[in-house]
Computed example of a mutant assay.
Amino acid sequence: MDGFWSILAQSIGLILSWDPALMEIVGLSLRVTVTAVILACLIGLPLGALVGAFRFPGRPVVNVMLNALMGLPPVVVGLCVYLMLSASGPLGILGLLYTPTAMIIAQTILVTPIIAALTRQVVEDLQGEYADQFASLGVGPVDRIGALLWDARYSLMTVALAGFGRAVAEVGAVMIVGGNINHVTRVMTTTIALETSKGNLQLALALGVVLLGLAIVLNAAVMSLRASAVRAAYA
């Protein structure tokens, strides 16, 4: 028991002292994850809004696919991206394997279906409320999607935060395509796995505390956004 508290105290010390190695890993993790979530939102928000706002042939199939892809196994995504970016793959000439860019690609693929599926549900609910008004005003497709996305902005911020939470905790795909290379592609989750196996529990636990802190901040942000959305609805 004393050993646990000693390791915890050393871990907290690493965080409070802004240990350079720790901050480098945290910084890379956040850069990769934030970039992936932004790209996923650029793809997933319009896609989800399009599926949620309009009826078209094959729409039920698209809905099923989006919902199914929310549960994509990270290691499968990592393997597919690895094969695409490897020297013998179609994109091997770009030399992206074992770089932060490869990790961003993998995380974007994982998060985009989540963003799209959740956006579809939010927009579909709003479309049911506004369908008559859109029809009476003759609102075009582009303006309709823009209006729905704007009106759902608080809920969609929550969607983006959910995507961030999924991406920042991911380990399998980024381990495969990033290689967990020190000072290059070593992020929080892969470092925790590596350092635990090496017995360097202080750094592993410090990163675990940071991840837990991020989870708490994300949940607080989600609750705050939901409260803001409720206040805006009744304003």
Rank of each mutant, 00 (worst) to 15 (best):
D2G: 08
F4A: 13
I7E: 15
L8D: 06
L8I: 05
L8R: 04
S11A: 15
I12E: 15
I12C: 09
L16I: 15
S17N: 15
D19N: 05
M23H: 04
I25D: 07
L28V: 00
S29C: 02
R31E: 14
V32I: 10
T35F: 03
A36C: 01
V37L: 03
V37H: 01
L39P: 08
A40I: 10
L42C: 08
I43M: 06
P46Y: 15
L47W: 15
G48Y: 14
A49E: 02
L50Y: 10
L50E: 07
G52M: 05
A53F: 13
F54G: 02
R55C: 08
P57Y: 02
P57R: 10
G58Y: 11
R59S: 09
R59Q: 15
V64A: 11
M65F: 12
L66R: 02
M70I: 00
G71M: 15
P74A: 11
V77T: 12
V81D: 00
M84T: 13
L85G: 10
A87F: 06
P90D: 09
L91G: 03
I93E: 15
T101W: 10
A106Y: 04
Q107Y: 11
T119K: 04
R120K: 09
Q121A: 04
V122N: 07
E124L: 09
G128H: 13
G128A: 06
D132A: 02
D132M: 05
Q133C: 11
A135S: 00
A135I: 00
L137W: 11
V139A: 05
V142K: 08
D143V: 12
D143K: 12
A147T: 13
L148M: 08
D151M: 08
A152W: 05
R153A: 04
Y154G: 12
S155I: 00
L156E: 03
T158G: 13
A160G: 00
A162P: 04
G163D: 10
G165N: 12
G165Y: 10
R166T: 03
A167E: 05
V168D: 13
E170C: 03
V171Y: 09
V171D: 04
A173K: 08
A173R: 06
I176L: 13
V177I: 07
G178R: 05
V187P: 05
M188V: 01
T189W: 12
E195L: 04
L201T: 09
A204W: 00
A206D: 12
A206I: 07
G208L: 07
V210S: 02
L214A: 00
V217E: 08
L218F: 14
A220M: 08
A220H: 09
A220T: 11
A221H: 12
V222D: 05
V222K: 08
M223H: 13
L225P: 07
L225V: 02
S228A: 10
V230R: 14
V230K: 14
Y234Q: 09
